[in-house]
């Protein structure tokens, strides 16, 4: 078994009126060979919408909370890098 495995899974289609909605999830499995244990990260990625006329549309599930947290973390990291660089420039005679 490999160390990291990515898998895309489709759930049971749900019929609502004339639309069929199929939820899709992405799974990340992390298992260290020889050790009893592992980590599983399962998250929703999209829903596949099938209409009566046969058209299909993939609507992505956006994790807005994560996006905002990553933006804040990037801001903090950017400030840190800027401070380190400015400190380095100042020390030069």
């Amino acid at each position: 078994m490999s160390l990291i495995q990515f898998e895309t899974q489709a759930g049971r289609p749900i019929l609502t009126g004339k639309i069929i909605v199929t939820p899709i999830a992405k799974v990340l499995r992390l298992q260290i060979p020889g050790l009893q244990g592992g980590v599983i990260w399962n998250r929703p990625v999209a829903v596949l919408v099938e209409r009566e006329d046969g058209s299909q549309e993939m609507i992505h599930v956006r994790d807005v909370t994560r996006l905002l947290l990553l933006t804040l973390a990037s801001l903090a990291a950017g400030t840190m890098i800027f401070w380190l660089l400015s400190r380095g420039f100042r020390r030069k005679p």
Binding site: V21, P23, V49, V61, L68
Partner: peptide, 24 residues
């Protein structure tokens, strides 16, 4: 952690994100 709510109606399908305001 809740991520989003999928709302499917005869008008169409829309996805409403769930915001964790405390965390943000």
């Amino acid at each position: 952690r809740p991520v989003a709510v999928i709302i499917a109606s005869p008008e169409g399908v829309r996805i409403e994100p769930v915001l964790d305001l405390t965390k943000i």
